[in-house]
Amino acid sequence: MIRLARVIALGGLMLAGPYPVFAGDLAEGQKIARMCRTCHGIDGYAQIPIAPHIGGEPQEYLEAQLMAYKTGTRVHEMMSVVTAGLSDQQISSVAAWYAAHTATASLPEGVSAEDAPATCSGCHGADGISLLLDAPNLAGEVNIYIDTQLKAYRIGKRSHVIMSEIASDLTDEDIRELANWYANVSLEISPPE
């Protein structure tokens, strides 16, 4: 029930359009991002295959995930350690830093957006740029990252009111196909102006 309430609340935010939830200080965020860059890059372009690209993602999504790690509703051996040492304000700031970047996606040559997986594209976009504040970009993520997340939703290791249900019906083959679609998109991330 709590989760449902959160989705409704985010629905309200979506109507209002993107705006900073808290006043994240970009300079402070950039400083904190030094703890993130070895895996996610200082601009949010991931350096290692198990880490997602986070530059240019919605601040709300980033902040919600960091808070989920901090409070233990999402668990990861590295992220849980990192977030435990961050205050709510620092989480806001670092989320603001990465969200201030711009993510630009382009589909491979000859591939049409119409062929994008309908299961995902309504929220994550045909090219993997999120259409919702509560959804991550998927453009250019390594397929094993997307694969791992979908499987985590399917077995309940990660949970979300929409994603858990979607993933519960997917086979391993479905998952790999969706993952490959977004993995084949090229992603560019540009810094804040």
């Binding site: 993130c36 070895t38 895996c39 590295m78």
Partner: peptide, 8 residues
């Protein structure tokens, strides 16, 4: 090399 140290 370190992964989350402020100065690697």
């Amino acid at each position: 090399g370190s992964w989350n140290r402020i100065d690697p």
